[in-house]
Design a protein around this nucleic acid. Structure first.
Lengths: 106, 106
DNA sequence: AAGATAGGTGACCAGATGGTCACATGTCAA
DNA sequence: TTGACATGTGACCATCTGGTCACCTATCTT
């Protein structure tokens, strides 16, 4: 019953982790300490979340001295999209999604 | 720290629920009993999962007599995509995702 | 060298989640 | 109208998950 994208979906299931992705989407290459400063949580909590995101491939890291830089990887997100939206219905889904976004900005 | 897409991500976090979406992606309009026959789980378990999917808007239903028909709704999936993939990087993410899929089919 | 800084590990606890069952309601068919 | 069928509810329990802490290692700076 399990599938290979399991880690990705588990990673996305937590609001704190989604917020971390939002932060990295806005600006890449941040350190753990910098990300921690944006959250109301201990450093250990943030570290645990980043580890989950990295394990899922949603975040990739690069060490630079004593710092560890974090980058967003959009590929797993695109794979989710491709799993349940085929190329024929993509136009409709996209249009409806944009409509919903516009309606909410009123 | 919570956000409005919370129900969608929670719904997608479970492999059984993703498999249900796969079944509905292949063919829409199935009843609870029909879906249950595809899973190695009690009817109650399947019902609980379908309720979560419906609450998240990933599945919409229509009653027909004593039956309840289930349909896949792709819009929430598209919204996930749009959250972390902007229109400039979409080409690259899409291309890499296709590449990964092709490589895995060898 | 020594203190400060950035990151890491394992154990631990409260709360959420997945799955089952006994039981109940509404609908079809003979 | 009686029985079979399709779906629904609430309680219950084992397990997973989010978060914290005490303690540790590695790197920079002066």
């Amino acid at each position: 019953m399990d599938d290979d994208g399991d880690l990705v979906f588990k990673a996305l299931a937590d609001p704190t982790r989604r917020f971390l992705l939002d932060l990295l989407f806005a600006r890449d290459g941040r350190t753990l300490t910098e990300l921690e400063s944006e959250l109301d949580m201990s450093r250990f909590g943030v570290m645990k979340h980043l580890r989950v995101l990295e394990g899922a491939g949603l975040v990739v890291t690069r060490r630079s001295g004593r710092e560890k830089l974090h980058f967003l990887n959009p590929v797993p997100i695109r794979l989710i999209h491709d799993r349940w939206i085929d190329k024929y219905t993509e136009r409709q889904a996209s249009a409806l999604a944009e409509l919903k976004t516009e309606l909410e900005n009123d």
